[in-house]
Amino acid sequence: MLTQMKVRGLMFDPYNNAYIVLLREEDQGEMLPIWVGKSEASAISFALEGIAAPRPMTHDLMKSLLDSVEAKVISVVVTDLVENTYYAKIHLMHEDSEFSIDSRPSDAIALALRTSTPIFAQEEVLRKQASEELDHWLENLKPEDFGKYES
């Protein structure tokens, strides 16, 4: 089973010196925080804020390449969580064939935001990450940390 997710926010995690992309179930249910590096976070942030970079960024190039053959991104799915590492797949449609391509969630999300593609998570991934430690951590976040990209 797949659950549709929205990018709810992007924030800095000073403890791990990394960024967190926060995905949340559409009906404000389960949250899925995904830790990403600085450049991945910036790729997502550009798309969230609709900033056009003076030169195409990596995921803009990715989109141009797909556009050049009229390949369409149908969906991206966070498929697995193994030892704190998330895995994802990008589903493409090209000339009546469907392709499913392995990706990191950060690339998948950065591309999804640029192509207005829905983001999904496997329900099993949502179950796996729901640890007490995480809940505790999320409780300590201030509400304003979430506000910025509220939809």
């Binding site: 990715m62 390449l65 090209h94």
Partner: peptide
């Protein structure tokens, strides 16, 4: 990933 797109398409 870009290479993978190119290969598949």
């Amino acid at each position: 990933l870009i290479r993978s797109f190119a290969d598949h398409l």
